Simulated assay, not measured.
Amino acid sequence: MEQTINIEQIFGILRKHSKMIAISTIACTLLAFIVTFFIMTPQYSASTELLVNRKQSSDANVQYNQVQTDVQMINTYKDLIVKPVIMDTVETKINKGNSHKLTDVDEMVSISNNQNSQVFSINVKADNAYTAADIANTTAETFQKKAPKIMSGTDNVSIISKAKPDLTPVSPKSKLNILIGLVLGLLLGIGIAFIRELTDKTVKDESFLTDELGLTSLGVINNIAEKDIIKKAIMSVSSSRLTRRG
């Protein structure tokens, strides 16, 4: 049997389960707050920029070809930087004299560049702002030193901007996480409310029996609350006593 719900019934369901929806919303928002501020580890970002630019020829055509070659070389450099030949040296330098040894430094490093640009960036994310800047600068310096040996004497990499510690974490995004928790809690509460209502097979009114099931109504027995029964019993006893006295 197909069951339909109109707008009035929708608002009725929301009002009926408003307390449960509010509890769900508050609980999920509180959970998002706890996870964001007490469980998730803040991540900090640092970047250093490098320029790929060899000594230019005075010939315009040769100069253009050299620029295009440098731009294409960046793709090779991007792959090379995160390879063990560079990262192993970086990891050794970072951990030298450091009691807290870092592993998988290569997973903290990413490379980015704009299309047709001779500049590319070494980006690092770590749980410490100073560590992130140190890894970015060490990676740039190590690559600049090793690139000519690896690439057969090609010396066209310059560091144009060193990384500086940024004490503002890039993640987690606290406001966004809490907003997501609030919205999910609200949707969860509304979803549970409708599921409970649609799966409730109890008879709620007489029209369901007569219109939906085609049965004949023989009468309606009203439900009387226990407190009303007690109240009426007390009133009945009091009235009986007054009658006897009269």
Rank of each mutant, 00 (worst) to 15 (best):
L184P: 04
A22Q: 07
T76R: 00
E212F: 09
T103N: 07
K83Q: 13
T36A: 09
K231P: 01
S158H: 11
E197D: 10
L218Q: 07
G191R: 04
I230K: 04
K146D: 13
L198K: 09
T92I: 09
I180N: 06
M108W: 05
K227T: 15
K96N: 10
L14F: 11
I26A: 11
T139C: 03
A233R: 14
L242I: 14
N113T: 15
T92C: 01
N6G: 09
K162G: 06
V105G: 06
F37P: 00
I159F: 01
K231M: 10
I74D: 06
K19M: 14
T76N: 04
K93T: 15
I7E: 08
D127G: 12
I159H: 01
S240C: 06
L213Y: 12
I23D: 02
M108G: 05
T139M: 03
V183P: 01
T142C: 01
Y44T: 02
P165W: 07
K55F: 11
S121F: 02
N113P: 01
I13Q: 02
L31M: 06
L176W: 07
L102I: 13
D134G: 05
L80A: 07
T76L: 03
T139H: 03
A163H: 08
V67Y: 07
T168V: 13
F33W: 09
L31E: 00
A147S: 13
K146C: 04
S158D: 12
L187V: 15
K204C: 04
E49N: 11
I160Q: 06
I195M: 09
L213H: 05
A126V: 13
S110W: 00
P169N: 02
E206S: 09
N98P: 00
L14W: 09
M20C: 08
K149R: 10
S236L: 11
S58R: 05
N223Y: 11
D79A: 12
K175R: 07
V85K: 00
Q68M: 15
I159P: 00
D155E: 14
P42N: 00
I74R: 01
K125T: 15
D228T: 13
D104N: 12
L14P: 02
K164C: 02
D228I: 09
Y77W: 06
I86C: 00
V82R: 07
D104Q: 12
V237N: 08
T36W: 01
N75S: 14
D228F: 04
A129I: 02
A225V: 13
A140S: 03
I195H: 04
S110P: 01
N123V: 14
A163I: 09
S171P: 01
